Simulated scan of single mutants.
Amino acid sequence: MRQSIAHIALVVRDYDEAIAFYVNKLRFELVEDTYQPEQDKRWVVVRPPGDGATSLLLARASNLHQETFIGNQAGGRVFLFLRTDDFQRDHAAMVEAGIKFVREPKQAPYGTVAVFEDLYGNLWDLEQFTGGRD
């Protein structure tokens, strides 16, 4: 059997502001942006450059209940982990783009890590692993 995670749904307030953040600030690729008239929503998929395996489905909140989870999808914990092959390059580019880091870079037993917020406040790790860790 062969399985993988194709998409992770990320609840957003607005499609276009989310696309602008992920594509322009994090330098993700816009994979698809298709209007679905039968549900009056869009199928918006972005992914980090060089990674064809897992992508984010930017899912606009469609009711008040879903809106309460914008920016808090993991209850205040780090929600997503962005692996890089060059921590210094990507950290510098993210700082230059105005990304807010809430924990500065540090060396850990598994590599280099810093915590940043996306446009809604969800926490992410930016990580460069060492020693064969994935």
Rank of each mutant, 00 (worst) to 15 (best):
D14N: 09
Y15H: 10
Y15K: 07
D16I: 08
E17K: 13
E17H: 12
E17R: 15
A18P: 02
A18V: 03
A20R: 13
A20H: 11
F21V: 03
F21C: 00
V23M: 06
V23K: 10
V23W: 06
V23R: 11
N24H: 11
L26D: 01
L26C: 04
L26H: 02
R27W: 11
F28Q: 02
F28M: 03
F28K: 00
E29H: 11
E29L: 12
E29W: 10
L30D: 05
L30S: 07
L30A: 07
T34Y: 13
T34K: 15
T34N: 14
T34E: 15
Y35E: 11
Q36G: 12
P37V: 05
P37W: 01
P37R: 03
E38D: 13
E38Y: 11
Q39L: 15
Q39S: 15
D40Y: 08
D40H: 10
K41G: 12
K41R: 15
K41Y: 14
W43D: 04
V45W: 01
V45E: 04
V46I: 07
V46S: 00
V46N: 00
R47L: 05
R47E: 04
P48S: 07
P49Q: 13
P49H: 11
G52L: 05
G52S: 05
A53I: 15
A53M: 15
A53Q: 14
T54M: 11
T54V: 13
T54S: 10
S55W: 05
S55E: 09
L58C: 00
L58W: 01
L58N: 02
A59V: 13
A61Y: 02
N63T: 07
Q66I: 09
Q66V: 09
E67F: 09
T68Q: 12
T68M: 09
F69D: 06
F69T: 11
F69P: 02
I70R: 00
N72K: 12
Q73N: 09
Q73F: 06
Q73P: 03
A74N: 12
G75V: 02
G75P: 01
G76T: 04
R77F: 13
V78T: 07
F79S: 08
L80P: 01
F81H: 15
L82Y: 03
L82K: 04
L82C: 03
T84P: 02
Q88A: 15
Q88H: 15
R89P: 05
R89K: 14
D90E: 12
D90F: 07
H91Q: 07
H91P: 02
A92W: 08
A92G: 09
A93V: 08
M94Y: 12
V95H: 07
V95W: 08
E96R: 12
A97V: 08
G98D: 05
I99A: 01
K100G: 12
K100L: 13
K100W: 13
F101N: 02
F101C: 04
V102N: 07
V102H: 07
R103N: 13
P105N: 06
K106S: 14
K106M: 15
A108F: 14
P109F: 06
P109W: 06
Y110G: 06
Y110E: 10
G111A: 04
G111D: 02
T112V: 13
V113T: 11
A114I: 01
A114M: 06
V115Y: 03
F116W: 01
F116L: 01
D118W: 01
L119C: 09
L119V: 08
G121L: 04
G121E: 03
G121W: 03
N122T: 03
L123T: 03
L123I: 05
W124C: 00
D125F: 02
